[in-house]
Simulated assay, not measured.
Amino acid sequence: MKAKSGDFVLPGDALGVTEEFLPSEWTYEEEGKIRSLVAGTVYIDQKNKKISIIPKTKSPAILSRGAVILGQIKDVRGQRAMVEIEGIKDTNRSLPISCVGGIHISQAQKGYVDKLTDDFRIGDLIEAKVTKVLGIDNADLTTAEEELGVLKAMCTKCRYFMNKIGKNQVKCPNCGNKETRKLSSKYEG
């Protein structure tokens, strides 16, 4: 299908191919095809060779470069921490689909990081910034800024939320276990 300006489309509808156009607002690229991210009207900018969508409803929350997300660490392996993205900060609209993000060890904090498990553990609640959107439901994230990082750390021994005791140190009020994290300057606890 090749869409024309003025066509009404639904999320996931094919609009064109990347050989002819660039994806723009409310669109994404998947395997060389440009698809609609939302229900709305197609707008084709012939001069700049871009396809965008004019949403039919209030703009849904979507991942975009520079957006600050709230999420939970689901896995930490080697040089990457996987995050289940719960929502976008300062929006009252939920994400239309479940999204995941990844924090590479080089994006955890400024300076050298020896082990990513010193910064994040499964269950931690975090705030991170989107550095790159990869498709409709995946993003690269960073916590290298001071206000980004772990908002609530979960004890690896007893699963209680931990209290902050130092710049990047937390202590469990239940079992006394001490651990390190890349804490946000807004850490709660």
Rank of each mutant, 00 (worst) to 15 (best):
D124F: 11
T57C: 06
T143R: 04
N48G: 07
L151S: 05
I62T: 05
S52V: 12
T143C: 09
E25N: 01
M82V: 11
I88E: 04
I53A: 00
V150H: 01
T18M: 10
T143G: 04
P55H: 03
L22S: 10
P23C: 12
C172R: 02
P173V: 14
L10A: 08
A61S: 07
N163K: 07
T41L: 13
R35P: 01
D124Q: 04
A3K: 00
W26Y: 07
Q72L: 10
G6H: 09
S94M: 15
E31Y: 04
I44M: 04
V17W: 14
I53S: 00
K129R: 07
F8Y: 12
V133D: 00
G166M: 12
K74M: 14
I165W: 09
R77I: 13
A108I: 10
T156R: 13
T131E: 08
R35E: 06
E145G: 08
K129D: 00
E179Q: 09
N138E: 08
I97A: 04
K74G: 08
D90I: 13
I97S: 03
L141H: 01
V170R: 02
I73F: 09
N92M: 15
G189D: 06
G66E: 00
K4C: 13
R35H: 05
I103L: 03
N174W: 14
D118V: 09
G78I: 13
G176E: 11
Y43F: 14
I51Y: 05
L22E: 09
N48L: 13
A81W: 01
R77V: 12
L151V: 11
V83A: 02
S94E: 11
D45T: 02
G149M: 09
D119H: 06
T117E: 10
S94I: 15
Q107E: 02
I54E: 15
K74R: 03
E19D: 05
K33L: 14
I53V: 03
M1Y: 11
S24A: 12
K171M: 15
G166Q: 04
E86R: 06
S59N: 07
P96R: 02
V150W: 04
S94V: 15
G6F: 15
Y187R: 03
L10G: 03
L148V: 11
C175A: 12
Q46S: 10
P96K: 03
N138I: 12
S106A: 11
G32S: 00
K164A: 15
Q46F: 14
S98D: 05
G6C: 12
K74T: 12
M154L: 15
G16S: 01
